[in-house]
Nucleic acid binder design. Structure first.
Lengths: 344, 344
DNA sequence: CTGCCGAAGTGTTACGTATAACGTCGAGGT
DNA sequence: ACCTCGACGTTATACGTAACACTTCGGCAG
C-alpha cells in the first residue's frame, strides 16, 4: 500500500499515527496521553484516535520510561509463591495495580538455597517502588541502596525506614484463638511455631503467651519447625511423645504446620478433635481440604496485596498512605472441641 | 568530592562512568557490554570497571531496551498462581531466566470473572516472547496479533502456531494409575474430571478410557467439577450416592479434586482406602497433607517452567528447541488398596 | 488601528544506551 | 619511504516518547 515498502511490519510509532492523522507527533502524544484535556480540539483528537486504532498503535513502554524516568512498575518481594498466602497477596496487588495501569513484577526472595539474585535484575526496568513482605536481610540491603519508596507488609510497624506499613491484626487473631480454646476448657497448650524468626511470628507468640498468662492456670510449651507439613508433623510428634502431661490443644502458627500436627496426632493414635484440638492460621485452601476441617484464622490475603499497592500509589502521588491494620477473623471448624477432661 | 554538586544523587549514567574513568561513553559501553572482547585494552577496561563499581553504576534498562528493541523479558500466562502447580512452573521458569539475565512477568489469565486485561499492559515493556499454559481464548487472540515467539506448556502438540511445545507425558501417567488400580483388582471406576476443557484433561480422559477398554471387564463413569475442593466433594458425593453398583475407585484429574473425593467418602461413611480407593494427579503439597496420603502422579512442575524458558531462549537464538515430553511418575501412597471384594 | 489574549498546533529537545563509522598511531613488510 | 593493517578509542547517531517553548491566527477591548 504505502510507497515505502517495509519487509517487516514494524510496530507503528506515534510518528506513524501522526502521519496517518495528518498532524504532528507532538499532537499525537497530547491526545493519547490523556492529560492536557482541551489542549487539542475534539475533532482533531478524534482523527488521531481513529488513526491510532486503525494502525493498532501501542506506545513503546521503554521509550516512555526513558523519557519520564518512571516505569509504573512495582517490585513485590515475597518468600515464595508456592505458599498460597503470598500467591493471593500477589493476586490482590496485581489486580489493583492493573486498574491504575501499573505493573507488578516479582522477586522471590532467596530462601537460603541458591544464589541471592539481584533484585533489580529481576525487574526488567527501573522500579518506581517496592512492596516487601518478610524480606530477607540481603534483599533489604540491596534495596536500601536505591532509595525507593518502600511499603512493608505484615512487619514491625515501629520501623521508620518504610514509607508505609500494611499490617494485619495478627495479635487479635491469636487472642481469638486462645479465647476460643480457653472457653472450651483447654489449659495445657502446645505452640507449634514457625522456625523463621520474623515479626509476624513473634507477634503470634507474644499474643499467645499474654493471653494464656492472663488466664492464670494455663501452661504452654513451644516447639519450632519450618513451614512444611513433614517438618511440622515431626516436631509435633516428638513434642507429643514426651512423658508428662500431654497438651490438649496445639496452636499452630500456620495452616501448613497444623496439617503436620494433625498427621502427628493420627500417627500417635490421638483423635482430632476429641482427644486433641488443633488450630491453624491463614485459612488456606488446605484448611477445608483436611478432615476434620481446620479451625483457623482467616487472613484477608488479597486485601493485604491491594492495600500494599494502594499505599505505594499514594506515596508515589505524595498523598498520605491510609493507616490502620486489617481485621482478621477466627473461623471455627471441626478441629477444635472441649478437652477430654471436660467431656467426662 | 566532585566539583559539580548535585542536589539529588541521581543514578549515575554510563557517561558519568566515562567521565570518572577518563574515557568516552562508548568505551564504557564496550567494556561493560561484555561483547567485543579484546576491543578495549585490559588496563583501560579495568579502569572503567573500577569507576563503574565506585559509582554504583547500573545500566538503565529502559534506554537499553529502546536502543536494542529487545527487552530480555518473557511473559508467562498461567490460569492462577494460587494453584501450586503453576506457582512451581513460574519458579522454574524464573530461576532459569535469571541465569540468562532474563526476566519473567506474569499474566494471570482471566478466569472468566473480572475484566480481561490487556496482556501487554500487564508486561511493563515490550516482550521478547510468551510462554503460555492453558491459555484463555481471548488472551490467545490478543497475543496472536503481535507475532511473538510462543511456547506452549502442556497443550496439544499438533498445533502449529506455537514455536515450541513443552509437554508432560500425561497419558503415560494415567496409564500408570489405571495399571496400578487394575492390578489391585478394581473394575468399577469413577472418573472425577475437571470441568475446564483443555487438552491436558482431554488426554487424561482418553488414556483412562483406552486403558480400561483394554482391560475388557472394567466400567467407568465420569463426573465433572471445577478445580476446587468443595466442588469436587459435591460432585463425588452425588455420584457415589446414586443407586446401583458403587465404584470401588475414584480416579481424579487433580489432587484438589481428589481431596474433595476423600471428603465425600468420609461424609458417606466410606473408609479410604479400605472401601474406596482415590487417586490424584500433580503431587501437590496437599497430597501428603491429607490422611491417608494420596496416591498420585508426580509432575515435574519446575522442570516444565525451566524447559519452557529454555525452549523460548532457544527460539530467540534461532536454535531449535529441544523436543520430547517430560516423564511423570506414579507415587503410590495410602489412598489406594485392593477393593473390598478382593479382600474378602 | 493597535495591542493583547487564548486556542490550537508544531518544532525541538533530551532521556541513556549500543554500535556503526570513523580517526590515530605505531609496527612491520616490501 | 610508502602502504597496509591491527589495536584501541572516539564521534555521531538513532531508538520512541513527553513536554517545553514557540508560532499562527482570529477575536475583541481600548
Amino acid at each position: 500500500m504505502t510507497s515505502a515498502q517495509q519487509p517487516v511490519p514494524a510496530r507503528p510509532t506515534s510518528r506513524d499515527v501522526a502521519r496517518a492523522a495528518g498532524v504532528s507527533q507532538a499532537t499525537v502524544s497530547l491526545v493519547l496521553g490523556g492529560k492536557w484535556p482541551g489542549r487539542v480540539s475534539e475533532v482533531t483528537a478524534q482523527r488521531v484516535r481513529e488513526a491510532a486504532a486503525e494502525l493498532g498503535y501501542r506506545p513503546n513502554l521503554a521509550a516512555r520510561s526513558l523519557r519520564l524516568g518512571r516505569t509504573r512498575t512495582a517490585l513485590l518481594v515475597v518468600p515464595a509463591l508456592t505458599n498460597e498466602f503470598f500467591a493471593r497477596v500477589y493476586a490482590g496487588a496485581a489486580a489493583l495495580a492493573a486498574e491504575h495501569d501499573f505493573g507488578v513484577v516479582l522477586y522471590p526472595s532467596p530462601d537460603g538455597t541458591g544464589p541471592a539474585r539481584d533484585p533489580f535484575a529481576s525487574a526488567r526496568a527501573a522500579l518506581d517502588g517496592v512492596i516487601a513482605s518478610s524480606m530477607a536481610a540481603d534483599a533489604l540491603d540491596a534495596l536500601h541502596g536505591a532509595d525507593l519508596p518502600l511499603v512493608m507488609l505484615d512487619s514491625d510497624p515501629s520501623g521508620t525506614g518504610p514509607a508505609a506499613h500494611v499490617n494485619l491484626d495478627i495479635a487479635d487473631g491469636m487472642r481469638q484463638v486462645t479465647g476460643h480454646l480457653l472457653g472450651l476448657g483447654h489449659r495445657r497448650f502446645l505452640h507449634l511455631a514457625s522456625a523463621v524468626d520474623t515479626w509476624t511470628f513473634a507477634v503470634r507468640a507474644e499474643a499467645l503467651h499474654d493471653a494464656l498468662g492472663a488466664a492464670g492456670d494455663a501452661t504452654v510449651r513451644t516447639v519450632r519447625a519450618p513451614l512444611d507439613v513433614g517438618a511440622g508433623r515431626e516436631a509435633a510428634e516428638q513434642a507429643l511423645a514426651v512423658a508428662g502431661e500431654r497438651p490438649t490443644a496445639i496452636v499452630c502458627d500456620d495452616d501448613i504446620l497444623a496439617a503436620g500436627a494433625c498427621k502427628a496426632a493420627r500417627r500417635l493414635g490421638l483423635r482430632v478433635p476429641d482427644e486433641l484440638s488443633v488450630t491453624g492460621f491463614d485459612d488456606l485452601a488446605l484448611a477445608t481440604a483436611l478432615e476434620p476441617e481446620l479451625t483457623t484464622v482467616r487472613l484477608p490475603a488479597e486485601q493485604v496485596g491491594e492495600r500494599g499497592m494502594e499505599a505505594l500509589l499514594a506515596v508515589l502521588d505524595g498523598r498520605p498512605a491510609e493507616q490502620g491494620g486489617l481485621p482478621v477473623q477466627l473461623v471455627v471448624r471441626g478441629s477444635t472441641a472441649p478437652p477430654p477432661a471436660a467431656r467426662a
